[in-house]
């Protein structure tokens, strides 16, 4: 999932919820699955990564 979101953010630095969901569900041969049900946290994490990358920081 981290690799897929990195790929997404390199092409699309300001993704919408839908962009992130599509990247993790339909863009590959099969969906990226999370058994813990952490999709909400993953969505927030992808947006946070986008913000930090835009600022050029990792903290």
């Amino acid at each position: 999932m981290m690799i897929k979101v990195t790929e997404l953010l390199e092409a699309n630095p300001k993704p919408t919820d839908q962009d992130i969901t599509d990247a993790l569900t339909t863009s590959g041969p099969s969906p990226h699955l999370c058994r813990c049900g952490s999709y909400a946290a993953i969505l927030e994490g992808a947006h946070r990564a986008a913000r930090l990358m835009a600022q050029g920081t990792t903290q």
Binding site: T21, T25, T26, L33, L43
Partner: peptide, 16 residues
């Protein structure tokens, strides 16, 4: 496998 025991995908996530 995951095709005959599917679980929720991110696209199926409701508003929480």
């Amino acid at each position: 496998d995951w095709s005959n025991y599917p679980i929720l995908t991110m696209a199926q996530m409701p508003e929480l």
